[in-house]
Amino acid sequence: MQSVEQKAIADWLAAKTGKPVQLSNVRALSGGAIQENWAADIDLGDEVIAAVIRCDAPSSVSDSLSRQQEFALLKAAFANGVTVPGPLWLGDPALLGRDFFIMRRANGTAAGHRLVRDLSLANDRPALARQLGRELARIHGIRPPRDDLDFLPLPEIHPAQEFVDSARAFLDQYHSAFPALEWGLNWLEDNMPAQEPLCLVHRDFRTGNYMVDENGLTAVLDWEFTGWSQPLEDLGWLCARCWRFGQQGDDYAVGGIGHRDDLFAGYQEVSGRKLTAEQVYYWEVFAHLRWAMIAIKQGERHLSGAEPSLELALTSHIVPELELHILRMTGLEG
C-alpha cells in the first residue's frame, strides 16, 4: 500500500474518531484472488489496534459479495456471538479508489494443511470440533428477514433444487460433458430432504477458512459466499471428504481435525438441535457436487486463457476424484 494511501486512511480515521491517528507496520497479507488484505497497526493515541484493511483487488471481477456486504455480514455475525474479526470501519471508496473495510486482526493461522498435522495448534481437537459446532449454530441463528442483510437473495425454491437447476443449466452450455456429475445431481434431486426454514449459511465453512492459534479457534473467515439456505449445508461442507486435507477415517471427518460427534455436540449446545450423521450425509454429497461445479469454473478461468494459473489448472484435475467419490456415496460402484 502506497504511503499516500496510508496517510489518506489515517486522516480519514482521525476525522472520524477525533483522535490523532497513525498507521504503522503496514504489510501485505496473503489473501484470495478477489481481495487484497493489508495488516496495519492503527495508533489512536490512547490505543493501538491490530487491524486488517480488506480491499477489493484492483482487477476484481467477481460475483461474490462486495466489501460493503461482507462488512454487514461480519457485523451481524459478530452481534450473534460468532467468533469473527471485530468489524471496525467501513471505508470510503474514494480514499483508495476501491471498496474496503477495516476489521480487527485475529491471531494464528488458517493454513489447512498445517492445521491438520501440527498438533501444537488448537491441540485439544475434540474441543475445536465442538467449538466449530457452536459457531455454526450461532451463524444459523440468524434468520430472514433482516433489513441489514437484504442484499442476500431469498431462494424461491428449495436451495438444493436451485443448485441442481443451475448446475444443469451450466453443464448444458459447457464444452465438456460430466456424466458422473449428472448422476450425482439426479441423486440430489431424488433424495432431497424436506425444506426447513431458511437461515444464514456461511457456505464456505471449512478447514482453511477459520483461524486457530495454540489455544483454539480465533476467527471464522471468508464470508463472501454466505447466503440464505439450509443449515445442514454448512455441516455437510465441513464434513465432506474433499475438505479433510488428506486425513482419513471418522476421527478426522470434521475438516480433517475431529469427529462428527463432537461437532454435533457443540451444535446442540447452542441450537438445542440434535444432529445425526445420516441427516448430514445428503449435504456431504451436495458438498462434493458443489465443489466439483466450482472446480470446473475455476479451471475454466485458466483454460479460457482469461487467467493463466497452474493452481487453477490443477483445480480442474480435482474433479475426477470428486466424481468417483460421488458415485461411491450414491450407490454406483463397478
Binding site: P179, A180, V319, P320, E321, L324, L332, G334
Partner: peptide, 19 residues
C-alpha cells in the same frame, strides 16, 4: 452403470491416483 464407473475411474487414474 458399469460404463459410467469405468470412464470415471479412468479419469481418476490419470488425474488423482492418490485417491
Amino acid at each position: 452403470r458399469d460404463l459410467l464407473w469405468q470412464v470415471t475411474l479412468q479419469r481418476v487414474r490419470e488425474s488423482a491416483p492418490r485417491y
